[in-house]
Write a protein that binds this DNA or RNA. Sequence first.
DNA 1: CGCGAGATTGATGGTAATCAACGAACGTGG
DNA 2: CCACGTTCGTTGATTACCATCAATCTCGCG
Lengths: 235, 235
Amino acid sequence: MKQDDIAAIRNLSLFRLMREDTFLALIEAGFLQRFPPGVVLIEERDRADFLHIVVEGQVEMFATTAGRETTTDLLRPVDTFILAAVLSDQVYLQSARTLEASRILMIPAEKVRATMAADPAFMRAISVELARAYRTAVRDLKNLKLRTGAERLANWLLRTNAEQGNRNRVEIAFEKRTLASRLGMTPENLSRAFAALRPYGVKVKGPEVDLTQPQALAEFAKPDPMIDGCEENLS
Amino acid sequence: MKQDDIAAIRNLSLFRLMREDTFLALIEAGFLQRFPPGVVLIEERDRADFLHIVVEGQVEMFATTAGRETTTDLLRPVDTFILAAVLSDQVYLQSARTLEASRILMIPAEKVRATMAADPAFMRAISVELARAYRTAVRDLKNLKLRTGAERLANWLLRTNAEQGNRNRVEIAFEKRTLASRLGMTPENLSRAFAALRPYGVKVKGPEVDLTQPQALAEFAKPDPMIDGCEENLS
DNA sequence: CGCGAGATTGATGGTAATCAACGAACGTGG
DNA sequence: CCACGTTCGTTGATTACCATCAATCTCGCG
């Protein structure tokens, strides 16, 4: 494992404040593994054996029931996932698959729990991370229940534009069907939602979207800090 | 504050394992307050000043944006709320109002954070509680994204029936409009959803619902432990 | 009895899912 | 280099689901 990968992980809020010795022991107990695109890393209903960290690549969290499927989150370096299941030694509620070639660090759940018991700063960081994850989920719920599809798309565009440096050009780093599922709609409907945003200066060219009238778009989207977040991204 | 109220709070998983002295100090730092129905206890965007515990009565969590409103959770004794905001000293993402006359124990956020730092067992319990809250939110998201309104109602009926002792008679302990909002639909649509479930033995009489064919209803609802939960209720 | 709040029912329009067809982009193999 | 096939995205037609508006109904209560 490369030194700057370790540094990047160390810099995560989850690990930043813990003791150096427990951090190194934790990392060394993990396996860094490469996966090609489209590999299912974990499956809902399985017992949580490992804490996963996306070191490189891109991972989609998704969930299914009764033959239906939806994307619940999109992760990129350096994100952790399924912390909550690991913590309480429970089954996963979501599945995960790679969207592109990825490197994943997998730390045995038992080791995470032992480290948590040994290092108060780590336990504290876990609480903060779980609180963040919970609040993100609440935002997502509000987004879904209080907005239409086109509004969710408009706000996603504004948020992503900000994340990408306000160049008024948003790059969609994954398939549009994945974005559609993340936003809680079908691919067909995402197309129509893009078309509906055209009057507000939204121009789609393949994976790139130009926002020629960001202020008009914002007027339509009515972004709300209590949903779209000042703290974290919703991916 | 009555002795058995304290005992009930002590029995919460959040407080069960902490030290006796820190528990009593925490409780004593709190204010037990009575509220009539319909009082807004906290408002989103406000800074989290107190951890709240529903000792008696009933509390609705809700959220608004752009003039729209939705119910995000329904709490009854003995539930805690807004732990996540308290923990990280952030603003509330949800509002709360009493649905009936209620007694609420309010513990200053600063005291909660200090106690957490002093009692590792309490911090550990907070992590577990946050993990539970997060997983509940994920279940809620899956419920919303993967099911229709009638399916959500059917599963809610089955879940609530189980909570109430499988008497095949579900009592709705709040207004139907509140249930509708909780399930992500309008009151009108809830009525129609009830009508749609009639072929599966669902008979509504005011606030009571008889399930005359629970197995047929289950066949329609397709309950999924990864959504409807074996651990906790979604209220 | 009459009032008012909540629940229900009906009528209508909007939003989204589904099914089907077409088109563009890309990679492969001839 | 081009023909072909596959995949993804878009568009159109249709249907299902849900929101809104309006009217009626029920029930509890003054």
